[in-house]
Design a binder for these strands. Sequence first.
DNA 1: ATGGCTTGCATAGCAAGA
Length: 260
Amino acid sequence: MKIATFNINGVKARIEALLTWLDEAKPDVALLQEIKSVDKGFPRELIEEKGYRVETHGQKSFNGVAILSRLPLEDVTRGLPGDDTDEQARWIEATVIGDQGAVRVCGLYLPNGNPAPGPKYDYKLAWMARMEARVRDILATEEPAVFAGDYNVIPQPEDAAKPDAWRDDALFLPQTRAAFRRIVNLGLTEAFRARNQMAGQYSFWDYQANSWGRNNGIRIDHLLLTPQAADLMLDVQIDREVRGREKPSDHVPVWIELAA
DNA sequence: ATGGCTTGCATAGCAAGA
């Protein structure tokens, strides 16, 4: 079972790039972030024509997450528990029925949090605390589960081309990285770092200042696995070349292959 | 660079992103 995460930065602006990537990467499951669309406006027919089921949790203009799956889905839920007043669409879950077993997938778009300090940063940290509680509950089920998405967290200096430039940024502040570590340390495996220790492996390059041409990137799109999912991991890769294409997102897909 | 692109939207300059 190939599971990918991809912040597409607007599904309508990115539909051609998305369809091209689906054709060649052929993920069984694609967790999308920043669809920037309400559920009704999502171009689901074009994706269903390729054999994918489509589950969206959209919102007007901003945020929005979705699950595309060639495998059956069960128990789809929308929204991160813990705050009934939160109207931002940043979390969606489903159980994927694979040939060799079921996997719970959680697609997430963690708040950016800038400027920090400030209310947006407070929201980011509160959101991460809510995610920690949700991860705890899912870990208790002892089932294979994957938490994948745009975390807006640079875990370590080697995950940025210019770490000094991010020192005061909400993506790299010590409090942000500590909150990320608290989640991982509940017992999750960060898929990419479990298999690859190299620096200079990025998943985002800013549109500005020729960041892509100068490889001035950061690694902020992650897949975290429960122990039962980590035991099934066969491969993990970043589809870096997608960033160099026509009308690209500023993020690229990251994916894992599971024996499930 | 208090923002060099890019997106979406009350379609004209903003807000938001990272």
